[in-house]
Amino acid sequence: MRDHNYFVYILASKSRTLYVGVTNNLERRIYEHKQKLIKGFTAKYRIDRLVHYEHTEGIEGAIAREKQIKGWLREKKVALIEMYNPTWEDLTPSELKQLTP
């Protein structure tokens, strides 16, 4: 099986509701969340701020890491975010931030 670029990411709303996902195209996926093109939890609760992401080369590793993080208590997810992004800054590239409705 070929390796590709995959990302595990955490999105947050302004009120810090969290969502954990996996994708092979981080910019496209964040755009979809910001434009509310993905119906469901993230659109309903306005979860569109990228607060953490990790790169992996294989889908198996990405899915395993996503499941691991999803299994954590909220406090552990918050600790992971704050270890690398203590101010919960939106890490979305600036050109995508401008597209937020």
Rank of each mutant, 00 (worst) to 15 (best):
H55G: 00
E27K: 10
R65L: 14
H55S: 14
L26G: 04
R16H: 14
F7E: 00
L80M: 13
Y84L: 12
R46P: 09
I59S: 03
P101H: 09
K34Y: 05
P86Y: 06
H33W: 04
E75N: 13
R46N: 11
L26Q: 08
Q35T: 08
K77W: 02
R28L: 10
N24Q: 04
P86V: 03
L96F: 02
R28F: 09
N25H: 02
G21V: 10
T23R: 01
D3S: 05
L37I: 04
P101R: 08
I59G: 04
K97Y: 01
K34Q: 15
D48W: 05
A64Q: 14
E66G: 03
M83G: 13
I10C: 04
N24K: 10
A79N: 15
A79G: 13
H33F: 11
S13D: 09
E66M: 13
E75C: 15
L50Q: 01
L37W: 12
K36P: 06
E27I: 01
L18D: 05
Y84T: 10
I63L: 00
E54K: 09
V8P: 01
P93L: 11
V78S: 12
N24T: 00
R2H: 08
G40C: 00
R29I: 10
E82I: 08
L50R: 00
Q68W: 10
E89D: 13
T42N: 06
E89P: 10
I69F: 08
Y9K: 00
V78Y: 06
N85M: 02
E57W: 02
K70P: 09
T23S: 03
A43I: 03
R49D: 07
E54C: 10
E89M: 07
L73T: 04
R65D: 12
V8L: 05
L73S: 12
Q68R: 10
I81N: 11
I59F: 02
Y19H: 11
P93M: 13
E75Q: 02
E66R: 13
M1A: 13
E89T: 07
P93Y: 14
W72E: 15
G71D: 11
I38T: 15
L91S: 11
Q35M: 14
V78Q: 10
N5L: 02
G21D: 05
T23Q: 08
G61N: 04
V8E: 00
L11T: 03
Q35E: 15
R16M: 05
R29N: 05
E27H: 00
